[in-house]
Computed example of a mutant assay.
Amino acid sequence: MTVPVLVPACGARYVVRQHGGDAASWYRQRCAAPGGPGLQPGAVIGLAECGDRVDVGLLWPLFAHPAAGVRAGAVAGLRALDRADAQGLRPLLEDSAAAVVREATAALLPLAEQLPVDWLLARTGSMWPRHVGVAVFRLLDAHGGVVALRAAAGLLEDPDVKLRRWAGRCVQRWRPWAQVRRAEAEVGGLLDRSRHLFSDQVLRRREWEAGLDG
């Protein structure tokens, strides 16, 4: 029996069952041989849609697959099965394919606080591909608190205009709230570095909120 691997899960179920089979088993067979030349991204997504959490073991090895679509599909599958793992997914933030990094970022956003801040900050420089820099900035921003402010302030002079403007907006909407210690010296320095983004009145308000009003 031949079923196109790009058929959505619901369609695959219908086609396979017409022949007395099971769609999840059909997808498992293909994902169980990751080195096979016929493995396509649709098979990986199909497994996530038709399978269950016991299939996670078939998805992790696909992170090393040479096809970016398969790697991205494996990450999307883990997220769909609610089996994302911060340390297991972290290396994919350096993937050469933007699609893989986007999927890894989406899976890691709820787990951002489990990622090492210094490791993320080290990948915000212009020596990294833009898709990597955007991904780690999103994750640093998700940390909140002084980590988010530090990351945004560090990109205010980035050569990428869009990233620089995005960082500026993040600084402007930043609030200290509970994650920041009152009168934290680093916050004062970062706000001063970003003072061109605020009116004097708004800057004084931010400093007051952070306990830096003297």
Rank of each mutant, 00 (worst) to 15 (best):
A210H: 08
C50H: 11
P129C: 08
G36F: 09
D85L: 06
D95P: 01
P8T: 12
Q87D: 03
G154D: 13
C50Y: 01
Q179S: 09
R30N: 03
L109I: 15
A183W: 02
A148F: 03
S194W: 04
V16S: 02
A67L: 13
P61V: 11
G133M: 12
A107R: 06
E209I: 08
A48M: 09
R193M: 00
A86T: 00
G69T: 10
P34M: 06
T105C: 01
S194I: 07
V161F: 06
L156G: 13
V101I: 13
A142R: 08
A148M: 09
C10T: 12
W177M: 06
L62D: 10
A135Q: 10
H196T: 14
H65Q: 12
V134G: 00
S126V: 15
L108M: 11
D213G: 14
L163V: 13
A32P: 01
R150N: 15
R138L: 14
D160F: 07
V171Y: 07
G11V: 09
L62Y: 06
R205H: 10
F137G: 01
F63A: 02
S194G: 04
W26N: 00
A43M: 08
V187D: 02
L81A: 10
G168E: 06
A48H: 02
P37K: 14
G211D: 04
C50W: 05
Q87R: 12
L197C: 05
R130F: 10
A64L: 00
C31N: 14
V3N: 00
A74M: 08
R13H: 06
A24K: 03
H65Y: 12
K162W: 09
L93R: 00
V101P: 05
A68H: 12
P116V: 01
R165P: 01
D141E: 15
A178Q: 09
V171W: 05
A153I: 11
W119D: 04
L139Y: 07
D55Y: 06
A12D: 06
F63C: 01
V16L: 02
A24N: 07
Q18H: 02
A178E: 14
C50P: 11
L81T: 12
L108H: 13
R30G: 02
P91G: 12
C10P: 00
M1A: 12
R53L: 05
L121V: 03
R130V: 08
L140M: 05
L78W: 07
A178K: 06
R150L: 13
H131M: 03
L121T: 01
D55F: 07
A24I: 03
R150A: 14
V187K: 05
R138N: 13
A142T: 05
A43G: 15
D141R: 12
A43D: 04
R123H: 15
R130C: 10
P159F: 15
V56K: 09
L212N: 08
S194P: 07
R71M: 01
V15A: 11
G168P: 03
L120R: 01
L155K: 00
L139D: 06
A68L: 06
T105E: 03
A74Y: 04
P34H: 14
A104K: 04
S96Q: 12
A12T: 13
